[in-house]
Design a protein around this nucleic acid. Structure first.
Lengths: 225, 225
DNA sequence: GCATAAATTTACGTATGCATTAAATGATGC
DNA sequence: GCATCATTTAATGCATACGTAAATTTATGC
């Protein structure tokens, strides 16, 4: 197979990927409506793959298909944030607990440790984008180490739903210095195999993150993001 | 509007409903493959709504679309059961905790109490079908009382995934007498507003249900259901 | 006989066409 | 003017058509 032979992603898959990107960047703004035919034209394909993509994204909670009103990009309210963070709290804490029970070796925990170091360095160099990327990596890796594929899927879905809110508030947040204390605490607990502590620390970590972001949204009157 | 004017569910919705039913009853057996065109013929419609239904059910973890191999009804392994019950444990326990914090009045808890009574009566009259229905009602109502719509959705999805396994093992299980002690404990804790206890009791309840059903599946060599 | 290649079949991915019906617009009566 | 009904418009839900590529079958060479 020549290097030029890139296997062609299906149009449906392209539609999914591109619509996700458009949603996360706000080029399809929260609360906006879009006709299937408009989206199809914009993506350079027919309505069929666009409908299939929309169905998929609807199941993932990113949009809603309303007959004759078009595809609606779902806004996220403060109440939604509470719901989502509560789910994230429970399932990530479960993942932390399960990870601690698995007796991982240090090499297996390297990626997790790396993300923590990256966050430290990002804070030193005051680069919040990099910090956010590493933070996301930490949470994703933690969940992966938990070894429950359904938890992984659900957490990814919920994370997608709060993605816009997180990037909007990124520069409003106090510099997340304390955050890495928690992260290290979780990592240490996993290293020691202390499932209860891993769970507890992460639980508190997520609940306080929830409080911070909800407070921000309310103070800045961002009722729907 | 005349009584005969029943609004016509869309073919896509019909396909979703009917395929779900076929999956739960085993008429589309776990692990079996089905061409889109066959399903379309069987449901008396074209491939288009069948594909849309399949996409939706795929997102809900009931089947998998594999190009040229047809739609595959996903079997559930023992490991899958572990994953699913762990998610159910966490999220239902969260719901119990949240419900306890909401200070519901007795009338608002009537449906939950009713389901418990129904289980008692079902056990007296040794009708496991009715018991299972009431048990399902209890869990669904508990989650509803938790007031987190995402938890509701996810729990419903996970419950669907273990539905076959539950109905297969229903008559293998020891008569679930102890079960209602837990249910009452959860209800009492919610009445008292004792969130921690509601959570703890329900958590143990679900984990022990997980142990029972996994033990059954293993002893009966039901590796994939 | 067996491996390989050519030919055929067929299931899917996607475009397209169209009937249906909700929404929008305009007409009518008061 | 305003409410009600008729008319028009247009977005969707779905059927259908078809090119493509994977899978299968058949043919071919050794």
């Amino acid at each position: 197979m020549k290097a030029t032979d890139l296997k062609p992603r299906s149009n449906t898959q392209r539609a999914i990927d591109e619509m996700r990107e458009l949603i996360f960047t706000g080029r399809l703004p929260a609360g906006s409506d879009h006709l299937e035919s408009e989206l199809a034209a914009q993506l350079g394909m027919s309505r069929t793959p666009v409908r299939e993509a929309a169905l998929t994204l609807e199941a993932q909670g990113l949009l809603e298909m309303r007959p004759r009103k078009g595809v609606r990009i779902l806004p996220v309210s403060v109440e939604d944030m509470r719901e989502i963070y509560d789910v994230l709290t429970e399932l990530e804490s479960l993942a932390a607990e399960l990870a601690a029970k698995r007796n991982y070796s240090d090499p297996e925990l390297a990626a997790l440790a790396q993300s923590i170091e990256d966050m430290d360095r990002a804070i030193e160099s005051e680069n919040l984008e990099i910090w956010a990327e590493a933070d996301e990596r930490f949470h994703k890796e933690l969940v992966r180490l938990g070894g429950n594929s359904r938890v992984e899927t659900i957490v990814a879905m919920m994370s997608d739903q709060v993605r816009r809110a997180r990037s909007i508030t990124l520069y409003m947040r106090p510099v997340p210095i304390k955050s890495n204390v928690d992260h290290r605490g979780v990592l240490d607990a996993i290293r020691k195999g202390d499932a209860a502590q891993a769970r507890r620390i992460h639980h508190e970590h997520r609940q306080s993150a929830k409080a911070v972001i909800i407070d921000l949204l309310e103070r800045h009157r961002l009722h729907r993001v």
